[in-house]
Design a protein around this nucleic acid. Structure first.
Length: 267
DNA sequence: CTGAGATCCTGTCTGC
DNA sequence: TGCAGACAGGATCTCA
């Protein structure tokens, strides 16, 4: 899926593509997503004004006075903006027609995405166990050291755990570990204090940079206008054959996910 | 409690 | 060209 930078990019794109924040009509096209789309959503949001659009972890949140829409893009979820008449294409799931005549259509090939209505978002099951936002001060050396000290997980799994850090996925986990010179297979509690500090810095650096470049496009990710992100060209290990040091990059499976690292640069 | 594996679904690519 | 199998950026659930 889109990870933090991609969701942030899409969130910003939606914000900037809304002239009037009032929703005319929410329409369910195909309710089969990760969780069936609740039939009551239209009655909650039709005619309502969006107070705020923001990202939390990998979720896009539309906030209203009476509650929030929580959207996850799964692996292949994307929005496209159209104007005028809606023409359906394969794998469309729902659309949000704004009063300003813009229509945002959600399309998801693999159906791993989701949309929920929550009257109280802090209480929602998808939200209440989410960990710290990595780009805030809450994510710091002390926080990561506390988490790693008592964990026997492989460090890559730990930083991808949404209950611990919100928004880091498979690509940026590999990239951050490369910057930190730590192997993805290293057991969390074996990280030294300075390794933890380096990792905190690296996660922040890589995410910020990816946001700046509009995200990464490996396969399915597209921003609102159909463009791919430019961070793809900035990747240092993910999906690459050769490290900049000349060494061949290894691709190992960790909990079933491809994990790239340079055996020479990462210890 | 922890951590690993199966699972949801479709499209694309590789190899025979 | 056909077809089987592997694989894809997520995260929840089940089980040991």
């Amino acid at each position: 899926m889109p990870e933090l930078p991609e969701v942030e990019t899409i969130c910003n794109a939606i914000k900037h593509n809304i002239d009037s924040p009032k929703i005319d009509e929410f329409q369910i096209i195909n309710n089969k997503l990760r969780w069936k789309i609740n039939k009551n959503i239209p009655s909650k949001v039709n005619g309502q004004t969006i107070k705020k659009i923001y990202r939390r972890a990998k979720y896009i949140v539309f906030e209203f006075h009476n509650g929030s829409l929580i959207i996850h893009l799964g692996m292949t979820g994307k929005f496209r903006k159209i104007q005028g008449t809606y023409t359906s294409i394969k794998h469309d799931h729902f659309l949000i027609k704004m009063a300003d005549d813009n229509i945002f259509v959600y399309n998801d090939v693999r159906k791993f995405g989701s949309i929920h209505w929550a009257s109280d978002i802090s209480d929602h099951f998808l939200m209440k166990n989410i960990g710290v936002e990595p780009l805030t001060d809450d994510f710091n050396n002390l926080y990561l050291k506390n988490k790693t000290t008592k964990s026997r997980m492989k460090i890559k799994n730990l930083i991808m755990d949404q209950k611990i850090i919100a928004g880091v996925g498979n690509i940026y986990a590999s990239e951050a570990l490369f910057l930190s010179k730590i192997r993805p297979t290293k057991i969390a509690y074996r990280l030294s204090k300075s390794m933890c500090e380096h990792l905190v810095r690296s996660i922040k650096t890589v995410l910020k940079k990816a946001v700046k470049y509009g995200g990464t496009s490996i396969k399915d990710y597209k921003t609102l206008d159909g463009n791919s992100g430019y961070f793809t060209q900035k990747l240092l290990v993910y999906g690459l054959d050769k490290c900049r040091c000349g060494e061949k990059i290894r691709n190992v499976k960790i909990s079933g996910r491809s994990s790239f690292y340079c055996p020479k640069c990462q210890k």
